[in-house]
Nucleic acid binder design. Structure first.
Lengths: 233, 233
DNA sequence: CCAAGAACGAGAGCAGTGCTCTTGCTTCGG
DNA sequence: CCGAAGCAAGAGCACTGCTCTCGTTCTTGG
């Protein structure tokens, strides 16, 4: 994010943003699969070929949207954690979960973009791993402060222990700067996955006409997950 | 599934199956979004227009694959329940979860087809609700026998109770023929969603380089979910 | 200050897609 | 046996992602 020097770079930044905006409204209206470069260009009054000066391919445009979405949900989680203050581990956990849920329900298509099935041959570019881990870092932060306060119960069983975690998880814990026992990671990952299972079912309409009291259902499950994560209030 | 009368109907059934087979291998190889009617027709040595005699549109072909996938995972779950026999509620639950997981890991693209993000403007046709509920009925069956044995603990709290469940859930419980208290449904739905959260994270590669001991992680989480579902061994 | 060169927009074009329509041919049922 | 229905094939339409070329415009080094 360097300073914009000339008029040309300024124009380029503006056009880039306009393309992303239009693409976002298309994704919002029709879903990611129906995103069309030509339609974006048409709506912006430019030739479709000109768009390739800004994004080398359709997938790159999608990646830009994915990064933005990760940043949005990550920011929502971070703000929820900040606002909840030092209100106890479980309270922080609840606040973050509810913030993520609010964001997901308000932006279903963007949620699908990042937490739905990965697109065809699409393998997440390295640009996305940073923004994607923002929301994981929030979870680490909660768990670390719980650990510091002595209210994090880490499973000492041998089956799921520190040996079972991978290099990316180790690196993320190290870079987070938090004092978090590695043995806590598998449990947190499991809880994390289950949380997004709840969100996916709700966002993708699998609870429609099945469960009406979804707020209560979610709050209850989040409490159970807090217990499962080892947060002892 | 009526009896095939003439040679013509037999040929039609065969061609229909061949189209589905080829489509399945394409989905397996490239994912659902890259499924191309023309490519299927090309591979089968027929004109693309001829394919429309068998499937009115690409979405209908996809729907047929989705129904098959639902049936496959439903059958896997049913067989696991049958084979586990009357071995106790938690054992049955574990067996079914592991069977579903095995199927999901063996058929990632088909899993994405049914439990990933719904395709663009695609709203699930009514053909899919029947096969989709097969696997849910397995869960109901486990819970009902647990209830009969007196080892199902149903939350008596007022927040998530029988009032919060929707018409489809009521109908499914009624049609299942099982004696299952309606108040148990929300908890089961939550546990169900969380199970598929675990599966989705694993199938979609979100645990790659993060958690290595995925078998143990899954088994441990399934046990926690059994507890959360109210299965008291 | 001005010319070389990079960045840019537009258009044509290629190969692919879903889908429709028309044209013949085959098979079935009255 | 003959009309009707089912079927395969081809041409064609509108659309897609993407590439290449050709002028134009802006930036910048000498």
């Amino acid at each position: 994010m360097g300073v914009i020097r000339g008029a040309r770079e300024r124009a380029r930044a503006e056009v880039t943003e306009a393309i992303k905006d239009e693409a976002r409204t298309q994704v919002l209206a029709e879903g990611a699969a129906r995103l069309s470069l030509r339609a974006v260009a048409r709506e912006l009054g430019m030739a479709s070929s000109a768009l390739y000066r800004y994004f080398p391919s359709r997938d790159d445009l999608l990646t830009a949207l994915i990064v933005d979405a990760y940043d949005a949900v990550g920011m929502a989680a971070e703000q929820a954690l900040d606002k909840s203050g030092p209100a106890g581990t479980v309270q922080e956990w609840i606040a973050v979960c509810q913030a993520v849920r609010r964001w997901a329900l308000a932006h279903p298509h963007e949620y699908a973009l990042i937490y739905g099935s990965p697109v065809p041959g699409y393998t997440a570019p390295s640009d996305t791993v940073g923004p994607a881990s923002r929301v994981v870092l929030v979870l680490f932060s909660i768990a670390a402060s719980a650990h510091a306060a002595g209210v994090l119960e880490v499973s000492t069983e041998t089956d799921v222990s520190a040996d079972g975690i991978g290099p990316d998880a180790r690196q993320l814990v190290r870079e987070s700067g938090h004092d978090l026992p590695a043995a806590a990671v598998p449990g947190l990952a499991a809880v994390w996955a289950q949380l997004f299972g709840l969100l996916s079912f709700e966002v993708f309409g699998r609870f429609d006409r099945v469960v009406d009291a979804r707020d209560d259902l979610f709050d209850r499950a989040v409490l159970d997950l807090a217990h499962q994560a080892g947060f002892r209030p």
